[in-house]
């Protein structure tokens, strides 16, 4: 069963939550996944920490630095994720991270282990489209891992259509110029026009809006333009300096999802 397709077919206003593996403590990964889903998260994005995360703002970068200092790395993560499907049997799970650690681990071995533990898809922002098609697509397909691509306000229609053809999961609409957790929201009218322009393309894949969505108001507004939204930095901030990270994650998600 395709967990991603099933989630989009059976739900509306999907909440995709991002958190960094190994943050705030090394072994929070699985308890956090479980707490997020129990509170109502519809998709999970687990961040693989990297020393130089170019597409991320200070909050996710900070959580990555802490996670690496805690001892997180891909072998440790895959060991932890052996408990993933016992904790969250139905929820789509994506791994998000940067290409270099994946390359060093070995792309094929990375895909094999990700598939083994029940991961559904991958988001590697610095994997260029041309490289993906030439060197990665076949391996991803072999292990039935769905690639998720980003679209920005600057992405041309021709390129959006190409990404839409390649994608078997959802398209990640970056809300405006900037890195994750950006606090300066782009002009609301301009942003609205961008979301509507994408909606009018009648793409075959569902869309989730991400970057800079921090609270219930932002989530609801995004849901007016797409199938759902992605929240990362705001969740990470809610986990800072708390004694019980899973409890904090649960109350954060309930705050977003309350009617």
């Amino acid at each position: 069963m395709d967990r991603i397709k099933h989630a989009f077919a059976s739900k509306t206003n999907l909440l995709n939550t991002y958190f960094t593996a190994g943050y705030p403590r090394l072994h929070d990964t699985i308890p956090l996944a479980k707490a997020l889903v129990e509170a109502g998260a519809d998709i999970l994005e687990i961040g693989m920490p990297f020393s130089d995360p170019l597409a991320d703002g200070p909050i996710i970068q900070g959580s990555s630095t802490v996670a690496l200092a805690n001892g997180m790395n891909l072998p440790v993560l895959f060991e932890q994720l052996k408990g993933l499907r016992a904790a969250v049997p139905e929820t789509p799970v994506l791994l998000m991270g940067y290409l270099n650690p994946v390359m060093q681990f070995g792309v094929e071995e990375f895909c094999r282990q990700a598939a083994d533990v029940g991961v559904d898809g991958l988001i590697l922002p610095d994997l260029p489209l041309a490289e993906y098609e030439e060197f990665y697509q076949e391996t991803f397909k072999k292990y039935d891992l769905k690639a998720v691509f980003l679209i920005t306000p600057q992405t041309s229609e021709e390129r959006i259509r190409r990404l839409d053809r390649l994608s078997e999961a959802f398209l990640y609409l970056v809300s405006g110029p900037g890195t994750t957790g950006g606090t300066t929201l782009p002009d609301a009218v301009v942003q609205e026009q961008y979301f509507e322009r994408i909606a009018a393309l009648k793409l075959r894949n569902p869309r989730l809006i991400g970057f800079g969505i921090a609270d219930k108001a932002g989530f609801d507004r995004a849901c007016g333009h797409a199938e759902g939204a992605i929240i990362g930095s705001a969740l990470i901030r809610a986990l800072e300096d708390v004694a019980d990270a899973p409890a904090a994650a649960e109350s954060f998600v309930r705050g977003i999802k309350q009617a």
Partner: peptide, 22 residues
């Protein structure tokens, strides 16, 4: 250094066994 990705380029770079840039 060993081959890897830094600042958008594939090149030789100093990194640990897990691909974190040192």
């Amino acid at each position: 250094g060993t081959p890897g990705i830094i600042h958008g380029s594939k090149t030789l770079l100093m990194q640990d066994e897990h691909g974190q840039i040192t």
